[in-house]
Design a binder for these strands. Sequence first.
DNA 1: TAGATTGTTAATCGATTAACAATC
DNA 2: TAGATTGTTAATCGATTAACAATC
Lengths: 225, 225
Amino acid sequence: MSIPAGHAEGARLPQPALERLASYMRCLIELEQAGAAYVSSQELENITGVSAAQLRKDLSYLGELGKRGIGYDVARLRERIAEVLDISHEQNVLLVGAGRLGSALLAYPGWRLYRFRIAAVFDRDPKIIGTTIRRLKVRSIDEVVEANEEFGARIGILAVPAWEAQNVADRLVAAGVRGLINFAPARLQAPPEVKVREVCFICELAILSYQISDPAPPAEGDAAA
Amino acid sequence: MSIPAGHAEGARLPQPALERLASYMRCLIELEQAGAAYVSSQELENITGVSAAQLRKDLSYLGELGKRGIGYDVARLRERIAEVLDISHEQNVLLVGAGRLGSALLAYPGWRLYRFRIAAVFDRDPKIIGTTIRRLKVRSIDEVVEANEEFGARIGILAVPAWEAQNVADRLVAAGVRGLINFAPARLQAPPEVKVREVCFICELAILSYQISDPAPPAEGDAAA
DNA sequence: TAGATTGTTAATCGATTAACAATC
DNA sequence: TAGATTGTTAATCGATTAACAATC
């Protein structure tokens, strides 16, 4: 009621704005924990590196949230972003792969702050199935479709080797997830209604490698000049 | 010599093109392993989802690499992208954090394909220091500056808890790295000449959550209509 | 009120797309 | 040659920026 209706149906966020909004969450959570009541776009610029103008533009997609002369109510802004990202209610997630990476993900401390809950962990290895990691019993991947009737998870995370990724993706889709986070170094095929986000460690390194290389990277033949 | 000089000094890749180029690498490596000699921009569109026009534009930044009527020489294209990303020679990398995530990263199978080599692993925990993970002895983080005199790594990877991240980043910078990959859920301060790439799992989930949410996410009050 | 900061507009900037001449 | 596909151009599209009136 008090929250402005904002963008009407169909009017969605520009992709770059969406990605930045997700990154503002972390920062707002920290500010809130530190007890900050209000924050200005200028202060957010100092913290995030995103310009104040850009920040205000991004936040304006969510409605009129700021107070002129004051700034943004930290808690209210965090809530509103969470609402738009659809992470303002608890959301079950399925994790496939209970190896090193899967275990590391299970231990990740941030899930709760974003209201995600790893509801179940699956693996293919009989030696791992049945064991318990952080209070969660590892199940057989064969049970994933049946299990998700209970959990209703919309997101599945792939932490499996590359050669198993497509098969696991197909099973997760069959289990009804609508989005996949893929940590495996393999490109996934999925039906168009299922969104896939590839997390590519090595690509990050490669991008960084370019960025820290000296200005004329393709120096060929006559290197000295 | 035979390779066109391409963009002159200072003319660098647009950021979106750079990020896509890094992602083409994986695909080209797979094609090469599968024995493909040539690939057309249309075929790459089918594999990567990036439009043929966009692909040709991206690749044109690297020089004239294709053969009209034929397509691109897979091996040559991969080599050229590697050259531009500055991953055509072996590159040492420092890893800090030998916990679950650090171990998972060490086990990652793709490093060699991108010519990265984890030269050394560091941790703070005396119980872990001195142990061996995948043939690599875990060293004390206190040794990082001295150790990198030997390794000359330009990139450091942070796989440590959030509260240690800034301190570790400072030490890595002191050790002479020019780029940081940060897996810790904390925003890092670094001098402007040091590039930082944040890898944020949970942000990926949040973005996906938005993308799979129903078109009118901020339905407030009158939900039924 | 005076000072501060938002939300929005219009201008700028840059990226994507489509089309096609060049050419293998 | 005829068919195919590139590399590049120009047009379109969308995102960023800067400026400022609105207003707390």
